[in-house]
Amino acid sequence: MTTGASATGALSAPLVVEFPFTRSLGPVQSAFLTGLRERTVLGVTAADGRTLVPPVEYDPVTAQELRTLVEVEPTGTVTTWTWNPAPRRGQPLARPFAWVLVRLDGADSALLHALDAPGGPASVRTGMRVRIRWAAERHGAITDIACFEPLDAGPADEDPPTAQPRPHDGEFADPVTGITAPARLDYTYTPGRAQSRFLAALRDRRTLGERCPACRKVYVPPRGACPTCGVATDEQVELGPAGTVTTFCVVNIKAKGLDIEVPYVYGHIALDGAGLALHGRIAGIPYDEVRMGLRVEPVWTEDSRYPDHYRPTGEPDADYESYKELL
């Protein structure tokens, strides 16, 4: 993980949010996307008789369910466009292209997609005639349309054909009922100045809390504000290193992406001097002997930002009364 620190010493690090979402389609979207796989473009007849392409499940004006499918042409007219000089990850084309809304012949609404325009923005204009360029491999997704491409210019350019939508039953063999939509977004996470101070001290194996100037409670990890008083905390207080297990659970299921052998004990640990418990793993003792009130201390390892775990100090257990307010 590449982490950074700003002029104020505040930390940041990359945060990737990525998941292949699995989307079920419902009947209309299923027919449309299956149709694309078969190089067939379907629309739906709206309540006012318009043909909507792409077909929507519910009427944009009346909200009524739409199910009457029709077929339209793979050619159409650009209704508006904008140039994209630097395509991003996931966009239809890797080289500069135009985003376009295209009203396909036979349709009354427009579909958003990319237009491959090797001639650059000067070659694109509203009203130009285009046709679908099909993807070589099609699976039943909007990306089965690779993009649009210009239709050879001609007289028709000025006067698009008045194609009529044709009835279609929407039936295909082996219909597509779902799509997988991978999505990755890259963030830079900033834990904040207070947490950065806390993390910096951890590097020296010291746990620093911060005291609220109003209620005098000590927060660990500090979060920049006393959450009950709504004021900034800035007085640093060194805590522990020992503390008391206030409560815990024994974890018996292995979580994906978590490199901890089960069973293990996940505990709430009130470090001496802290106003509330922090969370950590408790080890160095059989898991079924961990108990509330157990006195523990941190165990550090070379490569870890946090204590690897907490182990018993050997002191007598803390009295319930002494930590019950910290539960």
């Binding site: 508006t80 994209n84 991003r88 966009q91 239809p92 985003w99 909007i142």
Partner: peptide, 16 residues
């Protein structure tokens, strides 16, 4: 289903 898989960003949206 129809738009997000193409990743049209906010600049594209505004341009159209």
């Amino acid at each position: 289903y129809y738009l997000a898989p193409l990743w049209p960003d906010s600049v594209a949206v505004a341009g159209l």
